[in-house]
């Protein structure tokens, strides 16, 4: 079984700073990391390969530094990595990203065949979760989002079953191979990579493709040009005035805050607890 995992390198949003003058992100302030959800996708692919055999390839679109994110996937156990990198991809929104990834998948399919595609639930920078379903639609294969479990992959009859997380619990869905899955963090724990993987990853050079390496590409659908959405303006989220501090010793504070709470007394008495 050949499993393809789409992965993205993202700035660590925990550390990123916003330049207060230009309201743009100071990308240099945050280290680039493998999108945490994608690590789970790779882990899942490696887990499935252990059961069903085959190969795991990761695919990423991004600048040359994204090679490091691919290496991280090799640490987790991916066999191969492909980076599509080209100025002409730059400025892509999810629609244009899904087009570029789709073209790369087509090319991989030609030589290797692809049985399953995994994506993260969303990328922590753009935070949209739209890329995966977009790729699936373009490939004409079923997208299964919010997956928390994969079971019963039947490579021969080309079927699988997954659990999709929904608000009220989960759905069990039967689908066909190939399908595209976007995975939640609950799906697995990313394991502690063995040393040989680490060494292999440190040495690993992913293949890098540019636009010309892909077949029949409609340049107009790529990058900024191919992106229907544009960012109008950016601004830092409004800082509130800050809390009114309740002073006094803890007993005073308790009394004071109870007064505030008790303005809504019914709210607390009505049996509205949902846990």
């Amino acid at each position: 079984m050949h499993i393809l995992v789409c992965i993205k390198q993202v700035p660590d949003t925990k550390i990123i700073k916003v330049n207060p003058k230009t309201n743009t992100l100071d990308r240099s302030s945050a280290p680039a990391i493998l999108n945490p959800y994608d690590a789970h996708a790779v882990e899942e692919a490696v887990r499935l390969r252990k059961i069903y055999g085959g190969k795991v390839t990761v695919l990423s679109m991004g600048p040359p530094q994204a090679r490091n994110a691919i290496r991280k996937c090799v640490e987790i156990g991916a066999d191969e990595g492909i980076l599509i990198s080209d100025r002409r991809f730059a400025g892509a929104d999810t629609l244009a990203t899904s087009y570029a990834l789709f073209k790369a998948v087509e090319k991989i399919q030609k030589t290797d065949g692809v049985d399953l595609i995994l994506c993260g639930k969303h990328a922590i920078d753009g935070d949209t979760g739209q890329t995966g379903p977009g790729v699936a639609r373009r490939l004409g294969i079923p997208p299964l989002t919010c997956v928390i479990r994969v079971e019963d992959v039947d490579v021969e009859n080309r079927t699988l079953k997954v659990h999709r997380k929904v608000e009220e619990g989960y759905e069990v869905i039967a689908s066909t191979l190939p399908s595209l899955l976007t995975v939640e963090k609950e799906i697995n724990e990313v394991s502690w990579a063995p040393l040989p993987n680490m060494i292999r990853a440190a040495r690993y050079e992913p293949s890098v493709w540019n636009v010309d390496d892909l077949d029949d590409v409609d340049i107009k659908q790529l990058g900024l040009k191919g992106s229907p959405t544009i960012v109008g303006k950016m601004w830092p989220p409004e800082k509130s005035k800050g809390a009114k501090m309740i002073s006094g010793d803890p007993a005073d504070q308790t009394v004071a805050v109870m007064k505030i709470f008790m303005k809504e007394q019914e709210l607390f008495t009505k049996a509205g607890r949902k846990n």
Binding site: T94, L95, S98, G129, Q130, G132, P228
Partner: peptide, 21 residues
Amino acid sequence: TSNGKDLASAVATDVLCGLTA
């Protein structure tokens, strides 16, 4: 929601339009 996001992403690609998450 899980389904709403899934659907919107698929439709956006289907009719080729922009989608803000």
